[in-house]
Design a binder for these strands. Sequence first.
DNA 1: CACACCTATTCAACTTGTTGAGTAAGGAGC
DNA 2: GCTCCTTACTCAACAAGTTGAATAGGTGTG
Lengths: 185, 185
Amino acid sequence: MTLRNAVMATLLEGEASGYDLAKGFNASVANFWTATPQQLYRELDRMEREGLVTARVVRQDRRPDKRLFSLTDAGHDALRAHLAAPITRPTAIRDGLLVKVQCADIADPTPVQADITAHMDWSRDKLARYERLRERLLAGRTEDEFLAGADRVGPYLTLLRGIAFEEENLRWGELALRVLAARSS
Amino acid sequence: MTLRNAVMATLLEGEASGYDLAKGFNASVANFWTATPQQLYRELDRMEREGLVTARVVRQDRRPDKRLFSLTDAGHDALRAHLAAPITRPTAIRDGLLVKVQCADIADPTPVQADITAHMDWSRDKLARYERLRERLLAGRTEDEFLAGADRVGPYLTLLRGIAFEEENLRWGELALRVLAARSS
DNA sequence: CACACCTATTCAACTTGTTGAGTAAGGAGC
DNA sequence: GCTCCTTACTCAACAAGTTGAATAGGTGTG
């Protein structure tokens, strides 16, 4: 029931196809709400049936048709109702890497180190994309100018959280690699 | 299939009942893998059937009996096999608060501010518990002494990640509150 | 010019995760 | 002595999330 809200939050940026949402979920919302393509297509269908979004089919030349979804007034209302609702539950994280690190001591750490390295690569990629998005949002303004004057600050605030998260992943990854290397030598 | 691994990682610390796991999941693993009580009871039953854990019933005086689970050799092997398996998929986060902040601009920010404040309170609580756990693990040693010499560093490394995460939540929460307050005035 | 990958979506089957209620006994506070 | 909280679980029903495959034309690489 909350994937809906994440989808509607994304559609505030403008219309999007299921496919658009699927790959990157607009790159910014994906940072705090993940979903598979099937989940999104299914949810968009339901939301259309309930009148929260409308679809318009766009015929394309050298590509399959696509259905671009946008928020209806009812969708806007539903989002506002969600915002007004009292409390959101605590963050749910599921991080398989940390599960591995938690028990890294019971076996050869080499594969865990490889895993940490792979995750750090992903973090670097994400950071690069986030920084590009940030430049685009700022559009030449300083952060203070932007925060004081922009129409919408929500996407920027969540972006900052995402950047901090990935930066912390990198810092922690370096520490973890250092510690595991020192012990296995 | 990975709740299993999180449960086994926790049982490395020693035997535990479903109830123990349910409240706090050992307080440290809970930080990167959440699960409801029902999920844990169900999974523990399955794992017992598959021989990954064994249960022993402990009769108690003024409390209901409990079943304490511990890892079997097969469980240890399964954990080691998991550690050796190549790559763990990227972290899945689902943070309803960030969804709200993402669209905070379309309505009165007051309830969102309340939500941020509530989350910051939770973060402070978690941080306090993490810091106590940290003191207990260090047992008087400095961090460097501990990391060089301790039997197991995994739980400490994941704890550090949890601490950094909650500290970042607080820093970000303060910023978000400041920005939203400045705009609504 | 074969092979793999990208866009764009759908269908079906499955596994996980969530919600709510129920049981049963002890202890704490008013 | 009434109510609520805590320990310790179980059952059932449902919602959400995952996996795998199918379709179908287009683009890019060796």
